[in-house]
């Protein structure tokens, strides 16, 4: 088990390195020189060159990539010029480790940009995750156990409709009616736990979290229902009944235990994806999270920020994968021992 974990972590690191190479290669291949944006409109070729050098964009692909890698571990300076450091240290931006790059557009380190926006996205993801897992699994199990009844059909029908609604539509609907027209909640504006306490934090997130959760919940209701129905027809569930176990034990101890295993996998990966920012939801509610940052960076052609965000998201997904696999081994002894 330990060897397996070590192997998975090493594999994850290798994958991250490959991801960073691919990301770099993609941006390198783009026809736009990011230095042009930093230099301004009336930029002479010499100035352009100077800007490119200052940002480290003049070097070749592998050196840039190596600089980036070095920055992650020891930090780096922009521009990394020893002469300038002596003559005009105030023009140098220092980026401490772990440095994911420096955004000239935002005159800020990518790491600190992420640090500012990550809590919003994580908060949103956690709250949405709780809503969708509890709701999705609960309604899914109810639908499966009441299969074929009005309750089942109602739940499946509603989840189908909600699944079909685009996120921005649900978000705007909630915004317009729940917050503005009926005034059930304040106009959503992100509040940290430090500012508003747990309740302030949660209530500031409730509308975007619901928006985000609705889509996932609808998918999870249908998925849970399918897995539970499948599991209820398994031979070992029949064995459990044949042993004379009460219906409750048959359902919860035998059928659900097996049915929920694949849901753990799905949930872990979906959650990891959300940590990287809910682009549409954050944009609709104007929440300063990773998703919104990504949209802005994309618009501004802010390459360092984009690279940092892509790698962060990749890291989340890889880590989640490892955690899910370990969890799987904990849940399913067949994985654990073979």
């Amino acid at each position: 088990m330990f060897a397996y974990l070590v192997r998975r972590i090493i594999g994850g690191i290798v994958l991250l390195i490959v991801m960073s190479l691919v990301t770099f290669a993609l941006f390198f291949a783009s026809p736009v020189n990011p230095a042009d944006f930093s230099c301004g409109k009336n930029c002479s070729p010499a100035q352009k060159k100077q800007t490119a050098a200052a940002l480290g964009f003049d070097d070749n692909f592998f050196n840039q990539w190596a600089d980036f890698g070095k920055g992650v571990f020891v930090g780096r300076d922009f521009p990394d010029d020893p002469k300038l450091r002596e003559t005009a240290p105030e023009t140098i931006a220092h980026c401490p480790a772990p440095c994911l790059g420096y955004s000239r557009e935002r005159t800020a380190n990518v790491t600190s940009l992420i640090k500012e926006t990550l809590p919003v996205s994580v908060s949103l993801a956690i709250l949405a995750f709780i809503i969708w897992i509890v709701g999705g699994v609960l309604f899914g199990v109810i639908a499966a156990l009441r299969r074929g009844t009005i309750i089942d059909r109602g739940l499946v029908g509603i989840s189908l409709v909600l699944y079909a609604f685009p996120t921005f539509f649900v978000g705007l609907l909630l915004y317009k009616f729940v917050a503005i027209k009926w005034g059930w909640v304040d106009i959503p504006r992100y509040e940290t736990i430090a500012d508003g306490g747990i309740t302030g934090w949660a209530s500031s997130l409730i509308l975007p979290a619901i928006t985000l959760a609705v889509f996932f919940m609808a998918a999870y209701v249908r998925m849970t229902r399918a897995y539970v129905i499948e599991s209820l027809s398994e031979d070992y569930v029949r064995t459990a009944r044949a042993k004379g176990l009460p219906a409750r034990a048959v359902t919860f101890k035998h059928a659900l235990r097996a049915a929920l295993t694949p849901i753990v996998t799905m949930a872990g990966l979906d959650f990891a994806g959300l940590l990287g920012g809910a682009i549409i939801t954050e944009s609709v509610f104007n929440y300063p999270g990773l998703g919104k940052l990504a949209v802005q960076a994309n618009r501004d052609y802010d390459l360092p920020t984009l690279v940092g965000l892509v790698l962060l998201l990749a890291a989340f997904v890889i880590i989640a994968n490892i955690i899910v696999d370990v969890l799987y081994a904990v849940i399913d002894p067949r994985v654990r021992l073979s």
Binding site: D235, Y236, R238, T239, A240, A258, I331, D332, P333, R334
Partner: peptide, 10 residues
């Protein structure tokens, strides 16, 4: 018939 599927794997 099939004790592998008739016993709970977990």
């Amino acid at each position: 018939q099939d004790p592998l599927s008739a016993m709970h794997p977990y």
